[in-house]
Amino acid sequence: MITLEDKKLTFRFPDVHPKACLDISFLRTLRIPDDGETYPLPPGLDTFPLEHVDDHMSKVPGSWLKHGGVMLPMHQSEAMWIKFSSHQITERRQAYPFAIKIAAGKIDAVSGKPWTSTLNFDHQNYVVSPRQPWLDGFCVEEGTIRQFVAMPLGEGYTVEEQLVDGAYTGGLQIQVYPMKREAFEERYPEKQDPFLEQPYVFYSIVDTPKLSMGLGAGGKMKQEIKADPYEPEEWALETSSRCFVHLANSQAWQAITGSKPPTKPLSAAQYSDHKLPWFDHYSEGPNVTCMDILSGVKSVNEIAETKGLTLLENDSVDVDRVIKLRSKYDTDQVREGEF
């Protein structure tokens, strides 16, 4: 079951384990320059607001109601990262493991293949929490991703528009599989511890590409997609929950929800000018080797150039301060500066 709790999606699997719980949140960040350089991790600025699509039935497109799920506002060419926080099982001193599939426009962000509802154990198409604390973009080569950058659907910028012909989906798709309880308890022994449907009514807003955003490939960033350390049979493949996350153009957000969207984030240049830190995260163990599909996609800036357009705020920046995050990531560890 999935609930929306204060700007985060909470996935629970009480049928598998009473405490199997994973929070997924979507964080705003600066868009790193799309200039061929590979940048370190940018900071998390704040969390995108989330709303149930069903709470705005009269104002969202019919396709959004069909997909269900939640929605969040993004400015055009704004970047985001996705944070995974698996809850700690206190008595076993271990966060519960989850396999998480992430797709943008139904293109798998790890493998680049079209969306399927299954885990592929030969060519890993998912990330594993708590080992993977976050995902910032599409895996384009081992140890490198291209940042998730919001672009309007229908203009050729998004990754799905480069890889799929026909109707575009946009948004983000997430599916979560918990580890089987027996496998978890065997691997992590207990440590000593004290304790409706409604008729849909459509009004003025039609499903134009301007409202729905998809994710394009931004600048390159150093980020490892960690290989699954568990055995295939340890995952509860018959028990999963999935959620569609619609990306609303921030200009339309207020018309839909009545709430103001967040302001535009800092640019990478403004951030670096203030000598604010970047981050570097390293953890041991093998990485997923990315497939060629995503390494061949064009970045948002490359597509803009072919159209004779210029991507604003794309100047290269000098990275002066890089804070190394410790290898064993703790969910409380902060990838955020003081602003």
């Binding site: 079951m1 999935i2 609930t3 929306l4 999606l9 629970r12 009480p14 049928d15 009473p18 149930h52 699509v53 069903d54 109601l65 069909k66 997909h67 269900g68 799920g69 939640v70 139904k106 969306w115 989906t169 798709q173 929950s241 999935r242 959620c243 569609f244």
Partner: peptide, 17 residues
Amino acid sequence: PDQSVLRVVREVRDGDW
């Protein structure tokens, strides 16, 4: 039981992708 209580909470609706 806990599982029944959790089912009372509002879930994010999944639709047809």
